[in-house]
Each structure stands twice: as structure tokens, then as C-alpha cells.
């Protein structure tokens, strides 16, 4: 935490944490291990009514007739990829909560205008959990000179998001979440291999990479939002074991 600096960015106007590296100043990212207990992930495969809200499939519809475009934009800009992880009561998560408070304090100490969003202590099955998300879109008014980046094929194979963005929304690289598998080599090396997001299942052991980004909410007021940058599969072994035991149990019961 002592190495963190608060840097101001334009387009979108944000405050971000940075660290000095041999390659220069880079945005600070944090890794959180845990077991997936809830997820709303791509691909986007079907459409639902904008007024109907976001269900588990995170799908949307395009309907700009009868002046409904504003409503669609308001709905679309909140669409997000989301994960929730648990450590089943491991003391690690209590420690991480304290670390997160330290990180928030770095923002507070470096600005007079930081409005810290109350971090509710969230529980899943009675134990501390964390959830992180990343929106698919950024509003063009916040990034007027930045070029739109097409959605990856594995995220938007039917071009539903692409057709939805219209003139008001953009997809930036920073709206992307990197989906991958963490692979350990025999020589102790570590690499991350791209993985289709549809392969992630509840019960998988994963590593999240998150950043803390301060977004403006009012004039000279910001709010800190933990943002999901990457989701890496560490192991699906325990999930598969539990599924196997469930199958065997059902077989025994006929």
C-alpha cells in the first residue's frame, strides 16, 4: 500500500492507483483468489426487453422505436459482467477486507473530494464474499475522443452488444475482462492462457484481478469502485469431484 500513488486520468475522468515499475508508472492491480459462487458472464446470446431488467443471462434487446432509445441506453450502460467469490470462512477474506480499507484510505489521503461508497460486508452462505463487476459500455460523453473497440467474438458472438451501443455508448479496452486459465509449468513458470468465458462454472477455484477506480459522481466528488479486470481459472477439480459424487449418489438412488 505504501508504494501506491493516486494518478488523475482523463477520458474517462478518473482517479486511479499506480505503482512504479521498471517500465514506468502502471495501474496497480490486485489479485483475489476464491471459489465462484455466483456469476453473470458472457457470451451474450439472447435478447430480453429493456424494461424487463437484467436477468442472469445479461442479455438485452434493441428497441429504439417510440422514443425508447434513452430508456435503452440507460439500461445498456449498466450491463455488466459480474462474479462473486467465497473462501468458505478462510481468514484470508478478513485480511483482504482490511487491505481494501487501507487502499480506500490511500484515495482519501490524496484527495479532499473522495466519497467512499460504504463497503457493506457481504455474505454468501454465512461467510464473507466479494463481488466485482465490469460494465460492457462507457458513455461516449465521458470519452469523446476515444475510438470504439469491437467486442471480442467470445463475448458478443451474435453482435447484440455491438448493435446496441448506438451513438451514446462505446466499448473500450478497459471495459473488457480478460478470461484465461492460469497454467503452472514443470519448471515453476506461470503463464495465462486465453479461455472462453462460457467455460467458467460455479464452484471453480479462480483468481480475480481487480483495480480500484475512482469515478466522478458530482462536481469534485468521486466514488471508489472496485473493477474486475481478469478472471483466471486455477482449478475446477473440487467442482468436478462434487459433480461426480452427486451423479454417483443419484445412480445409487436409481
Amino acid at each position: 500500500v505504501s508504494a501506491l500513488k493516486v494518478e488523475s486520468f482523463d477520458e474517462p475522468k478518473t482517479l486511479r492507483l499506480a505503482v512504479d515499475t521498471p517500465d514506468g508508472l502502471e495501474e496497480a492491480a490486485f489479485r483475489v483468489p476464491g471459489f465462484l459462487c455466483s456469476k453473470t458472464l458472457p457470451p451474450i446470446l439472447r435478447s430480453v426487453c429493456a424494461r424487463g431488467g437484467i436477468d442472469g443471462s445479461a442479455s438485452v434487446t434493441i428497441d429504439d422505436r417510440d422514443g425508447r432509445r434513452n430508456e435503452v441506453v440507460e439500461h445498456a450502460k449498466k450491463l455488466r459482467q459480474h462474479v462473486k467469490v467465497t473462501a468458505f470462512g478462510s481468514t484470508l477474506y478478513s485480511t483482504l477486507q482490511e487491505k481494501a480499507a487501507d487502499i480506500f484510505k490511500v484515495f482519501e489521503d490524496n484527495s479532499h473530494h473522495i466519497n467512499i461508497r460504504p463497503s457493506d460486508r457481504k455474505l454468501w452462505d454465512g461467510e464473507i464474499c466479494f463481488d466485482f463487476h465490469s460494465r460492457y459500455f462507457t458513455e461516449r460523453k465521458h470519452v469523446p475522443s476515444v475510438k470504439h473497440a469491437p467486442f471480442p467474438q467470445e463475448v458478443d458472438p451474435l453482435h447484440i452488444l455491438e448493435d446496441l451501443k448506438g451513438e451514446d455508448l462505446l466499448h473500450l479496452e478497459e471495459n473488457d475482462v480478460q478470461y484465461c486459465e492460469k497454467v503452472y509449468g514443470d519448471d515453476g513458470s506461470v503463464s495465462y492462457v486465453a479461455m472462453d468465458p462460457k467455460k467458467f462454472q460455479v464452484g471453480d477455484f479462480v483468481e480475480l484481478t481487480v483495480t480500484f477506480v475512482c469515478h466522478p459522481v458530482k462536481k469534485n466528488e468521486f466514488v471508489v469502485i472496485p473493477t474486475l479486470r481478469a478472471l483466471a481459472l486455477l482449478s475446477s477439480e473440487l467442482r468436478q469431484q462434487s459433480e461426480q459424487r452427486l451423479r454417483e449418489s443419484r445412480d445409487r438412488q436409481g
Binding site: P33, G34, F35, C37, A87, F88, G89, S90, L92, V202, G203, F205, E207, L234, S235, L238, R239, Q241, S242, E243, R245, L246, S249
Partner: peptide
Amino acid sequence: MNRFFDANDARAQIAKYIMN
């Protein structure tokens, strides 16, 4: 997660991750 998911094994896996 189904009823056969072993939380003890899960906590052990997290501990192993931290050690590495």
C-alpha cells in the same frame, strides 16, 4: 455448489495458493 462440495478442501486449496 452442490451438497458434495467439500469446503474443507476448498479452504486448503486457498491456503496452498497463498503459500505459493
